[in-house]
C-alpha cells in the first residue's frame, strides 16, 4: 500500500508538471463552462445541475483518454519501465498507483467545476441531492473511464494510439450503445440499454442513489484495472 501511494504521488506530481494536463484541464473547464452558461445559467431556465453533469460526462469520453494516454505508454517509450519494474514493486502496485494518481488529477478537475455550483446557488435554489449524487456519479464514471484509458496505454508505446483506442472503447459504451438502444430490433435494444454507460449515469445526475450504477461502474473499473495488470505482466514473457 505504501509503495502504491508513493507511485501515485509521483504520477500526480507529473500531471502538475505536464503542459498537456493543463491544456486538457482548461479545455474541459471551458467546454463545461460554455454549456453551463448556454443551457443553465440564464434567466427563466430551471436552476438544475442535471444538464451540466450530462454534458460533463460526454466531455469526459474525450478528456479522460487524453489524460491517461501517457500513463504506461510513456514508460515504455522512454525506457523508464526498465528501472520501474526492476525495483521491488509488483505490477498491481504500479497499476493502482497510476490509477490513484490520475484520479487525483481528475478530482482536482471536478473541483474546478464547483465554481458553477456556487454561481447557481447564489442566483437560485439548486437541489442539493442532485449536486451530491451528480458529483458522486462523476467520480464513479471517471474511475471507470480512467481504468479503460489506463488499460489502453498498457497496449502500446505510442500515446496517440492509446488515446484513440480508449476513445473508441468509451464511445462504444457511451454513444454507440445509446444509438443501438433506439435503432436496433427487439432483444438487442435491451442488451444495448444494459451496456449503455449513460443510462446508469443519468440516474446519478437526477439525484438518485442507484446500486445498479455502483455495480456497473465498479465492476468496469475492476475489470479494466485487472486487464491492465495482466497486460503489464505479459510484457515479461514477450
Amino acid at each position: 500500500m505504501r509503495k502504491t501511494l508513493i507511485l501515485a504521488r509521483r504520477e500526480l506530481a507529473g500531471y502538475f508538471f505536464s503542459p498537456m494536463a493543463y491544456v486538457i484541464g482548461a479545455l474541459f473547464l471551458l467546454a463545461s463552462g460554455m454549456w453551463f452558461f448556454h443551457a443553465i445559467f440564464r434567466s427563466g431556465h430551471e436552476a438544475s445541475l442535471r444538464p451540466l453533469f450530462e454534458a460533463m460526462a460526454y466531455i469526459m469520453v474525450f478528456a479522460t483518454p487524453l489524460l491517461t494516454m501517457r500513463l504506461v505508454s510513456e514508460e515504455f517509450r522512454s525506457g523508464t519501465i526498465e528501472t520501474l519494474m526492476t525495483a521491488p514493486v509488483t505490477e498491481t502496485q504500479v497499476i493502482l498507483g497510476k490509477f490513484l494518481g490520475v484520479m487525483g488529477f481528475y478530482l482536482a478537475l471536478l473541483a474546478g467545476t464547483g465554481f458553477f455550483l456556487v454561481l447557481i446557488a447564489v442566483y437560485g435554489q439548486p437541489d442539493g441531492g442532485v449536486a451530491v449524487m451528480g458529483y458522486l456519479g462523476m467520480v464513479l464514471l471517471g474511475a471507470a473511464f480512467v481504468s479503460v484509458g489506463l488499460f489502453a496505454s498498457t497496449l502500446t508505446p505510442y500515446q496517440l494510439v492509446a488515446a484513440i483506442v480508449s476513445i473508441a472503447i468509451l464511445s462504444v459504451f457511451a454513444i454507440m450503445m445509446q444509438l443501438l438502444t433506439i435503432h436496433s430490433p427487439e432483444p438487442w435494444n435491451h442488451l444495448a440499454a444494459q451496456l449503455n454507460t449513460m443510462t446508469y449515469f443519468k440516474d446519478f445526475s437526477r439525484g438518485m442513489f442507484d446500486t445498479r450504477g455502483w455495480i456497473f461502474f465498479g465492476s468496469a473499473t475492476a475489470l479494466f484495472l485487472f486487464l491492465s495488470v495482466k497486460m503489464l505482466e505479459s510484457r515479461r514473457w514477450r
Binding site: R10, A13, G79, T83
Partner: peptide, 14 residues
C-alpha cells in the same frame, strides 16, 4: 539487487 540498465532513462520532469 540493484540494476542499472544500459541506457539509463529517467523521468525528465523530476
Amino acid at each position: 539487487t540493484g540494476y542499472m540498465p544500459e541506457a539509463v532513462s529517467l523521468y525528465g520532469e523530476m
